[in-house]
C-alpha cells in the first residue's frame, strides 16, 4: 500500500523536481553513503577516515567537509570525482561543524579540547581557536554570519561568539547536555536542544534572553528516552523539526506558537536531520537501526527508510 503511494508521489513530482545528492556519515562504518533524493537509493559508498560524524556541504555543492573525529582532521570530498582531495587541520576530535553562509570559514567544535576552531577552507589554515565550555558540540551561525553559537555539553551553555573578533560576548545557560544550535532563517530566534534535559530552549539572539523552554511527551515512551539532538527549520520558519534520540521520534513544532504538533516515528536513536533544498523531504540519521528515514515535509509522514552504513550520524544534502 505504502509502496503504491510512494510510486504515485514520484510520478506526480517526477518532472519539476531535481535529484539531489544526500550524504550520510557512518560513524562506525568509517564511510559516507551517497543517496539519490528521488530514487531514495544508495548510489555510492565512499571510505573515509576514522569516525566520521558532522558533515557540511559547500554552498556550491562541490565540496563535502567530513569531520573525521578520531583522525583529528577534516577531510574534503570532491563531490564530482567522489574522492577525498585534501584534509584540513581542525584540532583534536572535531565533532560538529557549521559553515559561514559565504562558504568560508568552517567552524568546528573540538569535543575533547574545549575549543571551537575556525578553519579557512580555501587556504587550509586555522584562523582561530576559541576556548569554550566542556565538551563543545552544537554549532549554529546567524544568517548574516556575524554570530556563531557553540553549545558545550557538560558546561550546559550556549556561547555566543562574534565571528569578526572570535571572542565570546555572551553565555546562556540551557538544560543538560546541549547538542545542537539552529538559528531561524530570519535570524530572530535560536533553538538549542538539550539531550539529557529533554528540552529545546528558544533564545532571542538579540539580547540572549530565554523566551521559551519546549518540553516533549510521547505516550508510552519513558521521559528519559526523549533526548533532543538535531534541529532543522523550514525556510519560512513555520515548522521546526527536532530529532528525539532513543524515543525514535522526530517532533514537529509550530515555529510561531512553539507548540509541539506531532511526533513522527522514525528509526532507532535518531541523531541528525537535513532537508532537500526544495523542502520536499527531510532525512533523519538513525544511529542504532543503521538506516535513514525519509519524511515527506508537506504531509509530515514518514514514507520510507533506507539502509546505509554502520551507525549513521551526520547528514547533508547538495544544494543543486
Amino acid at each position: 500500500m505504502r509502496q503504491l503511494l510512494v510510486t504515485a508521489a514520484f510520478i506526480g513530482a517526477a518532472l519539476p523536481a531535481s535529484a539531489y545528492s544526500v550524504y550520510v556519515s557512518n560513524e562506525r562504518g568509517n564511510s559516507i553513503s551517497i543517496l539519490d533524493s528521488e530514487t531514495l537509493e544508495v548510489t555510492d559508498t565512499i571510505d573515509v577516515g576514522q569516525r566520521p560524524r558532522g558533515i557540511n556541504i559547500s554552498p556550491d555543492g562541490k565540496r563535502l567537509y567530513i569531520l573525521t573525529s578520531d583522525d583529528d582532521h577534516v577531510e574534503v570530498l570532491d563531490t564530482e570525482t567522489k574522492t577525498i582531495t585534501t584534509t584540513l587541520p581542525s584540532g583534536p576530535d572535531p565533532e560538529l561543524g557549521v559553515l559561514h553562509p559565504s562558504g568560508n570559514p568552517l567552524y568546528v567544535a573540538n569535543e575533547d579540547d574545549n575549543l571551537v576552531t575556525a578553519i579557512d577552507v580555501d587556504k587550509g589554515t586555522v584562523l582561530a581557536e576559541i576556548p569554550v565550555g566542556v565538551e563543545p558540540e552544537g554549532m549554529g551561525i546567524s544568517p548574516d554570519g556575524k554570530v556563531l553559537v557553540n553549545t558545550s555539553e557538560t558546561t550546559n551553555m550556549a556561547h555566543f561568539i562574534d565571528t569578526s573578533t572570535h571572542q565570546i560576548f555572551a553565555n546562556v545557560l540551557v538544560d543538560q547536555r546541549p547538542r545542537f544550535a539552529q538559528f531561524t532563517n530570519d535570524g530572530k530566534y535560536l533553538y538549542v536542544s538539550a539531550e539529557i534535559g529533554g528540552t529545546v530552549t528558544v533564545i532571542d539572539p538579540a539580547n540572549q534572553e530565554v523566551l521559551k523552554r519546549i518540553e516533549f511527551a510521547v505516550p508510552g515512551i519513558p521521559q528519559e528516552a526523549i533526548q533532543p539532538v538535531g534541529i532543522r527549520i523550514t525556510q519560512d520558519d513555520s515548522k521546526v523539526y527536532v530529532a528525539l534520540g532513543p524515543s525514535n521520534r522526530v517532533a514537529v513544532i509550530d515555529g510561531k506558537t512553539w507548540e509541539v504538533k506531532d511526533y513522527l516515528l522514525v528509526g532507532q536513536r535518531v541523531w541528525q536531520l537535513a532537508f532537500t533544498p526544495d523542502e520536499k523531504y527531510l532525512f533523519t540519521t538513525n544511529g542504532i537501526s543503521n538506516d535513514i528515514s525519509v519524511i515527506d515535509v508537506a504531509s509530515d509522514k514518514v514514507i520510507k527508510s533506507v539502509q546505509v552504513g554502520q551507525q549513521p550520524w551526520g547528514v547533508a544534502v547538495s544544494p543543486n
Partner: peptide, 9 residues
C-alpha cells in the same frame, strides 16, 4: 534556571 548570563555584564 535559564537566565541569560551575559559575559559583558
Amino acid at each position: 534556571m535559564t537566565d541569560p548570563l551575559r559575559a559583558d555584564g
